[in-house]
Design a protein around this nucleic acid. Sequence first.
DNA 1: CGTGTTTGTTATGAGGCGTAACGTTTCCTG
DNA 2: CAGGAAACGTTACGCCTCATAACAAACACG
Lengths: 244, 244
Amino acid sequence: MLRYVTVTQALSRREKARLATTDEIKATALDLMREQGTTDVRFTDIARVMGMTAPALYRYFDDRDELLTALIADGYLALGARIAAALAPLPAEDLAGRWVAAGSSYRDWARSEPQQFALVLGMPVPGYVAPDEGPTTEAAKAAMGQLASIFVAAAETGRLGEPLIREVSQAIIDCEKAKHDELIGIVPPESFQAMMQTWAMLHGFVSLEAYGHFDWLEPDARDELFRSHIRLAAKAAGLPVPAP
Amino acid sequence: MLRYVTVTQALSRREKARLATTDEIKATALDLMREQGTTDVRFTDIARVMGMTAPALYRYFDDRDELLTALIADGYLALGARIAAALAPLPAEDLAGRWVAAGSSYRDWARSEPQQFALVLGMPVPGYVAPDEGPTTEAAKAAMGQLASIFVAAAETGRLGEPLIREVSQAIIDCEKAKHDELIGIVPPESFQAMMQTWAMLHGFVSLEAYGHFDWLEPDARDELFRSHIRLAAKAAGLPVPAP
DNA sequence: CGTGTTTGTTATGAGGCGTAACGTTTCCTG
DNA sequence: CAGGAAACGTTACGCCTCATAACAAACACG
């Protein structure tokens, strides 16, 4: 069965139709997830909404896991695109603004698409195992790389200050060398460490909020807490601190 | 059907048997979740492992949601118990040690029981809606309250320093008054804010790690990163900072 | 136009959830 | 202690979903 189409040549009529149907299936799945507030999705329901029968969907996805894999990859792409869109209008030198924009995109995405967020960054779905390599991993790196790029830009323009915690273990230094050698000589190890802690900070807030653990806070207070949180993250990491 | 037993009087033979069976069901469910690495659980499987038939389980839990509710409540209790156990041997004045111990328990629990962690603090399970009041909420407060108690102890002994971020919005001040008036006059608003940010920091790291997003780091590096992370959290919040 | 591919259908089986109806064991009380 | 009630467990069943198989229609293309 022809499943993945090379993009080098123009798509035939059939291939375009196939892609359109594939997209519609994914979009319908997301709609249903939004509607029902779950990451669960029934082929039966997707098919019904699309005016098809369930077995037809197996022409496009071998099973539910393959659909989920596609949705997860799309999720990373969507997150990456949102961050990119938020960063685009900001000048490269506005580091504080870019940091706020990137963090806020992350948060806004999680709030507007909590199911997709859970799918991508939450507990792996029952039975689903992420492929070690592939489009998913690449999309993930692309999305997260944008956060890293702010640190890189800061370091390259000499505006990356000392992080609040300066002690770095050999294990983390080794990890930067082994896994992110592109940062060696640009982002010092203590800032590499701070970078991951910054992601953890951001993710922690967004995660708690998306899963309803901040529901007891008024929306205004949540917004203010986030603004403060993101300033804290910048300050802790040695990034230029956004204005309060 | 008799479901909840008053603890004031001794339990009859039957009540003890019922409780034992209920516990066995929950334990079996957790075992299966651990085994399969999911938060999914089939009554059929539980029953098979227990040497029963599935419909018998409905004598103990009305449906899957009720079992999940019980597991979530137990999860909070387990988390609370672990934190309490970690704090118990430490003297009240060792604030830095207590902070490290509490944070590490949180992390250890998530790592040793990732499914329970996902159940309790992750995405709400398909279809499941948490009851607004009840044992779940109380257990949650008890578990999280222990983190808060470290801040309270620090404040009461005059060892709670200024948090890194001092600006606090009126909305957050109002929220402390409305939802946590027991802290008013003890924990200043900017520290109340820092407290929640500290939770978010802790949760973010633990969450990313539990869901495999730090798998690319060597275990040693993860441990070191966590040590650094928890020091950062303490420093940012104005708590006494643990030694590196 | 005819042939092979693609896309859809209906039919079917396997398995889980939850209910109903029916024994069997356990407790409790007259 | 005997009878009755409650609790506990079973089998049988209906409904739903996943996934496959077999078949029919639409389409592309020589």
